[in-house]
């Protein structure tokens, strides 16, 4: 079910992106095409600017050089087609689960009845039925991120931007959520840009892995993941391509970090 190379069409294009924080060049001349309906992972050590790149793709910060275009148009701010899932969940503590999920639709002035229906759908999709009226403070980390994912999915985004969404939950929950994200994504196939520092997570989820190296943040190498879908966390681990790819990326990241292999 992998999308053939010939039919690949760019959803978003980052061209010649550079970003400086003071004297520090965080991103250097990033050129990246993100294809329609692909699951792309940005993989790199901390400090390689992957989160900065994601925020630039979401129009939250402006690059010092270069542009991001989405569906052929240069973005000026957060685009309507994209929805972000945040590392620290980014839930409003004064809103219930339902109200948090409804928030982007309330902002977009979606009719009330339609909001209620979509909230119900999204909450059920991420397995939070029965927790609609709970406040985030009363939920576990895993459940909070389910809310974050439901909020992003409910608006029906064409592109999902995910900023290390599972980095703040325990290892067991992380695998569980990875599996659920796989099955959800394989149903809807939004274009996904997923930031992670975990090679395993990248291989498990992605069609394509972009390895970044740090200081300055640059695209180092891009890897295709030759593991067919539908996948599960287990089926990926047992796939013959898994170990070699993991080793290759590991060596690549080490080389990128400038340390001896």
């Amino acid at each position: 079910m992998t999308v053939a190379t010939a039919t690949r069409q760019a959803k978003a294009v980052a061209s010649h992106i550079s970003k400086w924080y003071g004297d520090l060049e965080v991103l250097h001349d990033i050129n990246l095409e993100i294809y329609q309906h692909e699951f792309l992972c940005l993989l790199g050590p901390s400090g390689c600017g992957k989160t900065t790149l994601l925020r630039i793709l979401d129009g939250l910060i402006q690059p010092d050089e270069g542009t991001v275009s989405l569906d052929g148009e240069v973005i000026q701010g957060p685009p309507r087609q994209a929805a972000m899932v945040f590392q620290q969940f980014g839930l409003f503590p004064w809103k219930t689960v339902s109200q948090n999920v409804a928030f982007p639709m309330v902002l977009a002035r979606v009719p009330q009845a339609s909001i209620a229906e979509k909230v119900r759908w999204a909450v059920e999709l991420v397995g939070l039925k029965g927790f609609e009226d709970a406040f985030p403070d009363n939920l576990s980390g895993g459940m909070r991120q389910r809310v974050g994912i439901a909020r992003a999915l409910a608006v029906g985004p064409e592109m999902l931007l995910m900023d290390e969404p599972f980095a703040s939950v325990d290892a067991y929950t992380r695998e569980l959520l990875q599996g659920e994200l796989l099955s959800i994504w394989e149903r809807f196939r939004q274009t996904v840009v997923f930031v992670t520092h975990s090679i395993d997570e990248a291989i498990t989820l992605a069609d394509r892995i972009v390895v970044l190296k740090a200081k300055p943040g640059e695209i180092y190498h891009v890897f295709d993941v030759p593991i067919e879908r539908p996948r599960t966390v287990e089926s990926v681990r047992k796939h013959p391509a898994y170990e070699p790819l993991r080793q290759t990326i590991w060596d690549d990241m080490l080389a990128g970090s400038g340390r001896a292999v």
Partner: peptide, 27 residues
């Protein structure tokens, strides 16, 4: 600041920012 960014990411204008983010956190 993280919540301000969340609201911005979902295209909140200044009015919505006050209503959904600033006022509730100040209450």
């Amino acid at each position: 600041a993280a919540l301000v960014e969340v609201a911005r990411s979902f295209r909140a204008n200044e009015m919505a920012m006050w209503r959904h983010v600033i006022i509730p956190s100040v209450v």
